[in-house]
Simulated scan of single mutants.
Amino acid sequence: MKHIKSGFLTLNNNVRAITKMQFILVVILVIVAGVIGYYAGVWTAPKPPMLKEITIAYGAQTLSWGLTYVAKEKGIFEKYGLDARVIFLAGDTVVMPAVIAGSVDVGIGGLPIVASTRLKGEDVICIGITNYVPKGTGVWARPEIKSVQDLKGKVIAVPSIGGHIHSITRAALRILGVNPDEVKFIKMTYAEAYAALKEGKLDASYVSNDYYLLCQRAGFNKLFEYGDIPELRRVIWGTYYAKRSWVEANKGTVVAFLKAIIEAVDVFKDMPEDEFLPISEKYVGITDLEAIRVAVKNYGATFAKDIRVVVSDAKYFIDMLTEFVPEYKDLDVNRMIENTYVEQAMKELGVT
C-alpha cells in the first residue's frame, strides 16, 4: 500500500511538472507569436509618405505674403508633400544672402533684390509672383509734414536699403517731383517704424496695409499711395525666388510649392476674418482685428491663381529703376525669370 501511495505521489508530481512546463511553453509561444505579429504588422503596414523639407523666408512682416502663411497654417504645404519651415528675416538684403548660402530655399521679396544679386554674378531666378501693387500701401508722416514736398531733408523708414520698398519709394518720389537723393532712408521693421512715428522720433515711413488703420487712428498724414500713381500700377509687388541650381535639383519640390501657393488663393479669400487673427499675430505681429480686416481686404484683392511672372512687367519696373542703378540696363530680364514650373503647377491644378 505504501508503494502504491508513493507511486501515486511520484506520478502526481510528474504530471505537475509536465503541466508547469506546458504552461511555460505556452507563455513563450504566446510572447513569440505576439512579437512576430507586431513586427509583421510594422513591416506590412503602409507607411505615410516622407515630407520634403523646404525653408521659406520673408523679409517683411506683412499679410502681403499671406498666401505662404495660409499654406503653412492650413496644411496645404503638407497636402503637397512638403514640410515647410516659414521664417522671418529682417529685410530683402538679409533673406537673399541666406538663399545664396543655401540655408533658405525660397525667398519672398521684390524684383530689385533679384536684379541686384544677378549683377553680382549669382544665378537667382524668380519662379512666381505674390501680387501687384496693393491698394492702401504708401508713405505716411508725422502730422506736421503735410505734403510730399515737405519730405525734403527728412528721414523715411523702409524695411531694407536696396530692397523692393526702398526702390519703389525712390521711384515714387521722383515721379511726384521730389529728388530721392534729398531724402534720407533708414532701415526699420514696420513695427519699429510705427513705434518711432508715435514717439515723434521718425519723420515718415513706408506703411503696409497691415498698419494702415493704425496710422489713421494715430493721426498721421498719408502722403501718397503707390497704387494712386499711374506709373506704378504695373509694378510687380513681390516674387518667389531661388537659386537656379536648387530649382533644377528640386523640380518636384518647386512645383509642389507653387501648387500650394495657388491653392491658398481661394482659401485666403474664403477664410472667416477671425481665422486671420492667429496668423497675423504669428507672422505680422498685429492683433487688432479691424486693422487685420483692412489688410485682408486690400491684399486679397490682389491675389490671383495665375502667378506667372509677366516678363514685360518685370522689364518695365527694372527699366524704371535704371535711373538709380545704371547697371540694370545690362540685365537680361528674361534670364532672371523662369515660368516653367508655375505653368506646370497651374496645368496640374487646372488653372488657366
Results as ranks from 00 to 15, higher is better:
L82P: 00
A84K: 01
V255R: 03
Y212L: 06
G7Q: 13
F276N: 06
P46V: 13
A172F: 00
D319G: 01
T44K: 14
V294Y: 11
F276V: 03
L11I: 14
E248A: 07
N298D: 09
A291E: 09
A195N: 14
W246A: 11
M21W: 15
G110L: 04
G107W: 08
I286M: 08
V99H: 03
V247T: 07
V284H: 03
I292E: 12
I292V: 03
R174H: 10
A218V: 01
A314E: 11
A45P: 00
D313S: 11
Y240F: 08
S160G: 08
I18G: 04
A172S: 08
V104E: 15
V351W: 05
Y69H: 14
V207H: 06
L89C: 10
I186L: 10
G66S: 03
F317P: 00
D332M: 02
R293Q: 12
L258D: 15
E281P: 00
L213C: 07
V35G: 04
Y328S: 09
E225N: 09
L173W: 06
G66V: 01
A195S: 13
K152E: 14
Y241V: 01
E323N: 12
A345K: 03
G300W: 08
A256K: 02
N209M: 08
Y283M: 01
V311P: 02
A295K: 09
G300F: 02
G238T: 03
G109S: 14
G163C: 07
P97K: 13
Y241M: 06
F23I: 14
A314S: 10
V309Y: 06
V42M: 12
Y194L: 03
F8N: 07
I36V: 15
Y69E: 15
L176F: 09
S280P: 00
L11W: 13
L277A: 11
A157H: 05
R308C: 12
H3R: 13
I145P: 00
C126M: 15
I4G: 02
K20Q: 14
K184L: 11
V351D: 10
D288W: 04
Y212K: 10
S245H: 09
A256I: 00
I279Q: 04
S205G: 07
Y211H: 08
N221H: 13
S312T: 11
D181V: 02
S147E: 07
L258H: 10
Y328A: 05
A291T: 05
Y206F: 11
V155C: 12
P143M: 10
E122V: 03
R335Q: 10
K74Y: 15
A57C: 01
S116I: 08
M96T: 10
K52Y: 08
W65C: 15
T169R: 02
I229Q: 04
D105H: 11
K347R: 10
V325P: 01
N334F: 08
G128A: 06
D319L: 02
Y132D: 11
V255W: 02
V207P: 00
G285K: 01
L321Y: 12
A218S: 05
P112A: 10
I125P: 00
P159D: 15
I4Q: 13
G66F: 03
F317M: 10
I165M: 06
K5H: 12
L213I: 06
V15S: 05
R335A: 15
